[in-house]
Design a binder for these strands. Structure first.
Lengths: 203, 203, 203, 203
DNA sequence: GTTTAAGCGAGACGGTACGTCCTGTCTTTAG
DNA sequence: CTAAAGACAGGACGTACCGTCTCGCTTAAAC
């Protein structure tokens, strides 16, 4: 995930704070003005950086945006609510930045525009989404282990259902992701397909 | 959906053939060289039109592309295979242009890039996708009528499942839509959620 | 000079008033907004005409402007003040529309931009300026006849001196033509070169 | 005259060679294909520059052309032939690029079209032509100093006579400037008005 | 009176130049 | 060697203008 290659020992060292500054600036612009507002000049200016510093760290705008998205959608979160449903909802809420409005808008906008940033599909998604998928997969395995569900027939599909619906509803009906929409996708699609009636307790 | 505003009775009327020419040119370029090949100059040249004629009809490149997509994703198709599964697979194949390679590539590219063409989300999707959804919904109602399934609990979600998965797999894993992937999404997600085991005959 | 070709006997006859309307509109726009304001669409609109009617009469914008200039700079004027100086000043004042402010501004702007309207140089100037030059030449010949001056050595050059200075001062110093500037060019250049001291009575 | 505004000390400095490249390209195109061939894209391409670099230096095409003309009409030339006639002819030949065919054509085309480039009249002419006029004026003063002529009565007019005739003959009769035409204007107009018979030795 | 041919206003058409903006690279001074 | 600043080539976008064309309508001569 890191953008910084082998650091040489001579010369001025790179400003570590700059990376975060730039990515934050990019996410802000994304959240404020949509994808159209995210130009490299604008990002550099807001970050108080030069464009060369951006391109020294990222090969292209695509990769910068990919990293920005990645940075602000951490995967290292531990959820253990005791039920598959609780775990799934909590993890997805975390992934979509529910509770942080700017980040949520930026995340959604980013996901919706992902195809025009091919680097994302080709490089970041495999790295990042694979890790996320592994996390979700672990939730299912834990549920199997504790006897909550039987091993699902087509788990690969189950792992994509929620993000697919979130993306589709946004791209076609401009529907923003929310705690409620996540819960609904889980209850009405994921759990039934996992052989679990959606009659559990709601938090 | 039409791009032509209130047509005045005076003056030379707009050439209706030109609209189709331009949209066809846009789709060709999209299929041949991806979204990057679709420049207004290229579209105009291939259509044998002037740029002014393009901008007379569409306010921006976005709106032109939105119309191009709409025109080339027909909804008026009758399917009646006798089973819900057969109907769904056949209709989706039609929607995704399965069998016509150029159109299929163009459709997919278009769908993946749709968010950068805000006009699409705001204007075309409501008009076009609503009609498509109505078609799919009718398939479910017919299946209910003939006793194949019980009325689904959350049909709105069922209507979006396949296109959502198609879009998501393309945007995140570069997975192209195909007859097989459609069938899989139908069998592994839609039919089970409709209360139908996916054990029917495969064509 | 006329723009109307052989009139056929059948069909609706051309509206004679339209020619004048168009040329007047062109001169107005020229005087008001300079050469940049004279677009064919603007001329047509102001004249209440269609563009096709303009191009039916004139082959190009150049020729229309040439005719506009010609129409509003009549040559058929009789001057006979008794002296060469008086004749010259009076004739040039007439040519430059001194006394009519709009026309004067338009004339000057037109003359200054004449080269970008090649039709003028190639077609109208020979027709129109030749006639003007003949008029001026006649003034000199009359002065010779009445013994006021001897036959000038290089009359061709004398005939161009005043319009040349008017054009040059406008194009390089934005100096507008006026009664005074004409008199000065006549007194300080033309008359001395014609062998006449500039000591005559001023009107 | 320079196109570069207050140069900041930070950032990459403007490439001084580019200015010259661009102006040379503009003059070449002007000489080769007339004013119609001088498009901003063509100038940029021939100069190996981007359009943005052109517009960074000049606000418009007009101003670029004005500078091009200025650059290629040098004033810093020393003439001293011993006679007023010799000096004048030599200096004007220099100004009009006599001997360099491309430059001569470009100069003439430029001068004839100067009014459509208002920037010229408003900005370059005052700076450039004033310097030129001063040069010519010095020739007259030297002639006075050595007793060749008496102080002319209306020297301002004398200074404009030759360029005025050159421009007028080009704009109205398409007559190109040449060594002979310059000599004729000097002999038949300037020298007589300076009180000098045109009977001197011709080179 | 009907037909016919052309003129007419309106405005769409192909083509082309303009000036703006954005991406990714390069070049300066300063640290 | 990195930093900020900003110039650089290239190319797409959307606007404007020219000269042509196509509508529906009008006008007058020819039949």
């Amino acid at each position: 995930m890191s953008s910084t290659p082998a650091t040489p020992t001579v010369g001025r060292p790179r400003d570590a704070a700059l990376d975060a500054n730039v990515l934050r600036a990019a996410m802000e612009l994304l959240g404020e003005g949509g994808i159209a507002a995210v130009t490299m000049d604008a990002v550099a200016q807001r970050a108080g950086a030069g464009k060369a510093s951006l391109y020294r760290r990222w090969k292209s705008k695509d990769e910068l945006l990919a990293d920005a998205l990645t940075l602000h959608s951490p995967i290292d979160v531990e959820v253990d609510t005791g039920t598959l449903r609780g775990d799934l909802v909590k993890l997805y809420e975390h992934y979509y930045g529910i509770g942080n409005h700017v980040m949520q808008a930026a995340m959604q906008e980013m996901l919706g525009n992902v195809r025009q940033h091919l680097a994302w599909t080709e490089k970041v998604a495999p790295e990042r989404l694979t890790a996320r998928r592994a996390k979700v997969r672990a939730l299912f395995e834990r549920a199997v282990a504790r006897g909550e569900i039987a091993p699902p027939a087509d788990i690969d599909l189950l792992l994509d259902l929620v993000p697919a619906m979130v993306l589709y509803r946004y791209n076609t009906r401009n529907q923003k992701v929310s705690r409620a929409s996540i819960a609904r996708f889980v209850d009405a699609a994921v759990l039934p397909l996992a052989g679990l009636a959606a009659r559990e307790a709601r938090p």
